[in-house]
């Protein structure tokens, strides 16, 4: 025991060292977990992110409102016939992020467009009813979205995301 401690003759001493080191390493790794986990949203933040209900009756045709859900602005647009047609008639294959209008609204509720109002480029809020396509225009870096919230021009890589929502009734939606 006094002389042996080389790689080719594993000894009880080596085993002890490895075991102690391994246990200490496991402890260190386990300690890191709560220190990192605390950075995630806390329970009250998660609870505050519960679904919200929005009454659509006050929104006239051609108007839109902005509501907040989980700290994000959600655009709810009451689209005009012209806007719906423009959204539906565009050849899908020609779009940078091809998606038909029907995939972005709920069936039977073509007039309602609900999108997260955060530019997919770097997170600014696009302005509604602006830009060449009568959709959204982002003043930060010039991204242009159409009446379905799809990216048409500019640096943004993808369409404005559609948040999870359902129609509770014809005039009320639940977001989340």
């Amino acid at each position: 025991m006094t002389t042996a401690s080389s790689a080719d003759h594993p000894t009880r001493r080596d085993f002890l060292y490895v075991a102690t080191g391994a246990v200490a390493a496991v402890g260190a790794a386990a300690t890191v977990w709560p220190l990192v986990s605390q950075m995630n949203p806390d329970a009250s933040t998660i609870a505050a992110g519960a679904p919200i209900e929005v009454d659509l009756t006050p929104i006239a045709e051609g108007q839109d409102i902005k509501v907040f859900w989980r700290g994000k602005p959600i655009y709810i647009s009451h689209r005009t016939k012209k806007q719906i047609e423009a959204a539906q008639n565009v050849p899908v294959a020609s779009l940078p992020d091809p998606q038909p209008d029907s995939a972005r609204v709920k069936a039977g509720h073509d007039q309602w467009l609900v999108v997260v109002g955060i530019c997919t480029h770097l997170g600014c809020i696009p302005i509604a009813h602006e830009g060449a396509y009568d959709g959204f225009f982002c003043p930060c870096h010039g991204s242009v979205y159409d009446t379905s919230g799809r990216i048409r021009q500019g640096p943004a890589p993808s369409n404005l995301p559609v948040p999870p929502y359902t129609f509770v009734s014809d005039t009320k939606i639940q977001i989340g």
């Binding site: 709560p34 220190l35 986990s37 605390q38 995630n40 806390d42 329970a43 009250s44 933040t45």
Partner: peptide
């Protein structure tokens, strides 16, 4: 109190 109640492992920290 909210640290202790709501933050992940807040009570521990």
């Amino acid at each position: 109190e909210l640290i202790v109640r709501d933050v992940n492992y807040g009570w521990l920290l």
